[in-house]
Amino acid sequence: MSDAFLNPDHPSVVFACRGVRVFVKDGDTEKQIVRGVDLTVRRGEKHALMGPNGSGKSTLAAALMGHPSYRVEGDIWLNGERIDTLEPHERARRGLFLSFQYPVAVPGVTVANFLRASLAARRGTEIPVRAFRQELNAAFETMSIDPSFITRYLNDGFSGGEKKKLEILQMLLLKPAFSLLDETDSGLDIDALKIVSDGINLASGPDNGLLLVTHYQRILNHVQPDVVHVFMNGHLVRTGGMELVTALEERGYDWLAEEAAIPEGSRA
């Protein structure tokens, strides 16, 4: 189980945050979306984050990655190091990864050129073309993506499923210490869900961790999280195991809102 009392720089902790609040500009004022989140993920752990639409799950994931639209308060730790003042690319080079719910297209930039550049950035060294090709071909096979995608423009004209598979392919190649997976299961058919889940499991090991943001039980049946959090109204309102997922499938979110004394109208 996650242990909120463990120090965020403890060697067994891969990722932690303390008192994270996220604000967005709202006209001349600011609106608070995330109202104080504490999270501790130990090496080898898989966490799931569930919550109703509009509760701020995606905002939390993007803010932890360092999205420039958000102002973030609180501490974020990766491998015992504070990363909350770092730029997104500096967080990525240290091993943080975000699988996007809606991956952005970059027309004119081939998947191969993009992956080679990001691998070089993550590893801090250029990868010889031949070695890169071999690694790339193996990853494409693992993720059941047609090799013709290697020379296509990044996410340009890709279907939803193709984009999500490419996100997990990047997770496999970049070998992040900690991955934020934002609704990686949305828009996937049954076969693609299996491929994506297998990829996530393959990328998971005893030294790294992940936080999987999702609405649905089905991906959790494949990925089997160690810890499940429920996120509502900008807070983690409940933490448990897979039994919590079953309870949510049966009863929805309202009972948790009542327990957490969240007023109706603020339960998103």
């Binding site: 639209s69 730029e87 690319h89 952005v104 027309p107 550049a117 950035a121 423009y153 970049l174």
Partner: peptide, 27 residues
């Protein structure tokens, strides 16, 4: 800016990302 954030999240600095986007633009 979403392209720059995406590329940044893959380890590319803002300048590297800009270079890649411009190259793509001309491609």
């Amino acid at each position: 800016p979403e392209q720059l954030f995406y590329l940044g999240s893959r380890g590319l600095s803002p300048h590297e990302s800009m270079g890649l986007v411009v190259r793509g633009f001309l491609e």
